[in-house]
Amino acid sequence: MTADKPFSGLIAQNLTVHYGRNTVLDDLTTPCFPHGRICALLGPNGSGKSTLLRAMSGLLPVKGCITLDGLQLGSLRLPERSQHCLYLPQALPAPVNITALEAMLAAKRIMPSRQGQSFADAPHEEDIQASLDLLKQFNIAHLALRKLNELSGGQRQLIGLAQALGRQPHALLLDEPLSALDLHYQYAVTKLLTQITRANNLVTLMVLHDLNIALNLCDLVCVLHEGQIIASGPPAEVLTPALLRTVYRVEARIETTDDNHRFIVITDCI
């Protein structure tokens, strides 16, 4: 944001991650993910997308340097780190006997800034208000008092997303946030995330499989292939037939509709 800072945004440099003896990411340097833009992380299965997000959020032991606005995230403990940069796992919230509202409140109350506050003297009213406002934005406020074990996978995914946003981090790393959602919510949630990203000047990076959503609704895309970033930039420039052939092993054309929407037509797989 300010000129004197080395980077404004989230960046990982010289990142190496091992699972046992298996090196998943080797000396990977990402482009700088800027504030206020929604960025899609693309790549085929097993290309290291989840590993990259989990490494950047501090859930994996890594070699390398991860910086958010010049702040070394590696030097922070996990609870503080999650205040700055929050990862949303791919797994849905478990179907347990907790209401959606309680789930959101529980996520808020363990923030380090709340330490020392007991359950009894937490600011219930404000927390409830803020949580309900968020649920309302996702159009699921009517589920606030329903238990998670009564809800569908998609509804739980929305609540998990609201839970993460309720923590108000500076950077959001979302691992397939649309995987269990219907067509309407896939678009609605992406648009809402864009809106929240712009309004709060967040760094938002999300793993996507739907290239058409990436093409039309994301500001930037970043393509991971065999543990290396092979392309990044505006979606229209990055997603080309040549790239789709290399990365996804499909023959494809990119078409543009009359009202300037783009879509990918897959003609064959290699």
Binding site: L59, S82, P89, A94, I98, I110, M111
Partner: peptide
């Protein structure tokens, strides 16, 4: 209770 990775990601 809501999942180990979720808890870890929330700090």
């Amino acid at each position: 209770r809501m999942g180990e990775e979720r808890a870890a990601s929330l700090g």
